[in-house]
Amino acid sequence: MNKGMSEIVKTISKIVSPFIIIFGISVIFYGHLTPGGGFPGGVIISASFVILLLAYGKEKILSKLSLYKSDILHDIGALMFLSVALAGFIGGTFFLNIFDKGKLFSLWSGGNLIFSNIAIGLKVGTSLFLGIILLSMVRIVYKENKIEFYEKKEDIK
């Protein structure tokens, strides 16, 4: 028996999801020039993983991006944001913008905005993915005064 959804859904989601990731990365990187920034870009990146999760089932996703790796990635995102803020101490005050601001409307014109956008995008993307997959990992079935936990769907009789 095939796990997951039908063949059409699997093929389409396999084709579409890299484009969604690239669109999310572009929303994060140009956050100081166009609408968006860290948080919406992170939500878009996690949405692409959730599409794959819905189409293929959780064992296949967890073999590509395990819970341990996404745990470490989201902590690195948080520490990166704090270190961008602490780097302002070199110039004098907290959170000062010490990087070189190039010419207007180019990619490097925001100072330390680009680093904080990348840090927040990383953190939000992995946190939302972790939240959704952890809430769906356990199946609870309530049968006539006894409650049982199941990990795989085949165990439910």
Partner: peptide, 9 residues
């Protein structure tokens, strides 16, 4: 009497 601090100047 009091300390005032401006974040990011």
């Amino acid at each position: 009497e009091r300390i005032v601090y401006f974040v990011g100047n």
